[in-house]
Design a protein around this nucleic acid. Structure first.
Lengths: 239, 239
DNA sequence: GCGCCGAGTTATCAAATGTTAGCGCACTGT
DNA sequence: ACAGTGCGCTAACATTTGATAACTCGGCGC
């Protein structure tokens, strides 16, 4: 059941059997959320962190004028709020974008891992660092890429991340978000989001229908996005 | 000499004398960089992480068309590349924006801290998590705030962070960046950056001359920025 | 003193992006 | 079958942002 977690953490360095069983012992208490429901509320102080087993979720902040900005997309194998273990107070919310099945990790147990399992601790730390690396890539995309390039970059990133946890189907992947939700990822109006999607479609590198994105020309998509996966740290080496 | 590091880490939870001496033992090898020099090169695999003792630095990425985007600003007491300890390969560069004095932390020593000092490890981890929280706030600012609000938010953030390490002077702080550099923070053209700065100046909440920003009306600045410092985790509690 | 140069500023025009409104289609519940 | 609803899509127009160019001013070397 924790396969995607093992795939996710194990892509960076090898996970010993003992570490796998520590993780198995850590995760307990499965829950489900419907699309649109908050998985973690902004301002709360959760006593556990949440791992996604199935579904798509996102972190977000809402501004005074009602505007919403997603700050990350979370897929199976991701801890959506591992940082809350040390940050304590959630400064943003986490919402289910599709029906989500999750499992919880008590902060007290996480703490005992940091006391007794230094290598596993480093791998969990690493997981949050990659989170940060993704944030940085998003900042660059928002600041200095064209909107089409930004969207292309997002698709590259999602495809590669989903591949690690075996959630791609050939060159396709399931993306259960509306254009309005995607607009809250890129920071655009819905109308302009639609224009950008049309442009990327018309360039012939992707198809997108029935909530399924198909990459028609990976080379060209990567080139439009200037996508370099280094930031995802997908090499296995001692950490 | 490590006062700003102690102030920075110590704002979140108390640092024992033993932890302070562990940190003292960790940091060795002072260096200096001139403004404009790379402190850490993109693509490198440093064997140590860098702490800023004095000066202003920034992380950045450069795109194919020559566009540059800063992804963070780093002040005294900040580790500019602590994540490289586990990420291994730098996916971006770190540049000195003013003359910088830094000191280094061998990754081998950092590793031994993770093996022997769990609480200090958690505090270092926390430091990188706050980094991520700042990234998220930047994403929100880039995506959904007006440019004036974004700039106001940046000034609020810098003021509060600089205050922690005692680098403010009343309601003023030293900000040795050109408008072109600031444009690479907000992701704007230089001309528009100038318009945004003028607008914030004209609203009377800040003054900015001789590389010194003075906050004239903190209440109003905070309001324009919708600034809520929760994300900086500036409360002292067990971590 | 003179001229060069970087930085800030402004003007003008072009391009990107937002706002408001409306249309059509698929899906849903009755 | 029917109306209601969410979503994708488009049009028309307003606003924001970018590109280019020019002007000022102060520092600095010669």
């Amino acid at each position: 059941m924790l396969e995607s977690l093992f795939l996710n953490l194990g892509q960076h360095d090898s996970l010993s059997d003992e570490e796998q069983s520590l993780l198995g012992n850590l995760m307990a208490g499965e829950r489900s959320f419907a699309a649109g429901q908050d998985i973690v509320a902004s301002g709360s102080r959760p006593a556990y962190s949440t791992l996604i087993l199935d579904g798509l979720a996102a972190r977000y902040k809402v501004l005074a004028d009602g505007g919403r900005q997603f700050t990350s997309l979370q897929i199976p194998g991701d801890f959506v709020d591992l940082y809350a273990f040390l940050l304590k107070t959630m400064d943003h919310g986490v919402i289910a974008l599709s029906p989500c099945r999750v499992i919880l990790a008590d902060h007290s147990k996480l703490r005992s891992i940091t006391e007794r399992a230094p290598h596993l601790t480093r791998l969990l730390w690493l997981d949050t660092l990659i989170d940060g690396a993704i944030h940085r890539e998003w900042i660059v995309a928002m600041g200095r890429r064209s909107k089409v390039s930004h969207l292309a970059h997002l698709f590259c990133e999602l495809f590669v991340r989903l591949q690690v946890v075996k959630r791609t189907n050939g060159t396709s992947f399931y993306l259960p978000v509306s254009q309005a939700e995607l607009a809250d990822v890129l920071g655009l109006s819905v109308v302009h989001m639609n224009r950008v999607i049309s442009a990327l479609r018309n360039s012939g590198v992707i198809a997108w229908a029935n909530h399924t994105v198909t990459i028609l020309d990976w080379q060209k998509l990567q080139q439009i996005a200037e996508f370099d996966p280094t930031y995802l740290s997908m090499t296995r080496e001692p950490r």
